[in-house]
């Protein structure tokens, strides 16, 4: 059974993917002591990590999920 993801969840998944790929690139770059590894870290790893973080913050401040139905308030007498 598949459940429909909300817009915010889709965006969180995307930002998680970006950060995850960035982390993997960083991991690979650490296995190698060479200028290209530094560029891999800076140009792919760090860039994707920053993009994922920024997209995450952008998502949580711009996507407004419909609020759950409010529970009826008990009127104060």
């Amino acid at each position: 059974m598949t459940t429909q993801l909300t817009r915010l969840e889709q965006r969180l998944r995307r930002s998680g993917l970006m950060a995850g790929i960035g982390l993997l690139a960083e991991f690979i770059s650490l296995l190698w002591n060479h200028p290209i590894a530094f560029f891999l870290f800076l140009g792919v790893g760090a860039l994707l990590i920053v993009a994922g973080i920024l997209y995450y913050f952008y998502s949580i401040v711009t996507v407004h999920e419909p609020a759950e139905a409010p529970t009826p308030r008990i009127q104060d007498q």
Partner: peptide, 24 residues
Amino acid sequence: AFVSIFIFPAFSGSMGFSEHMERS
């Protein structure tokens, strides 16, 4: 979500930068 998308990546990114600078 906050920890996995912000805290850990930011922490590991800054540590990675420092490590690469030392290696260079």
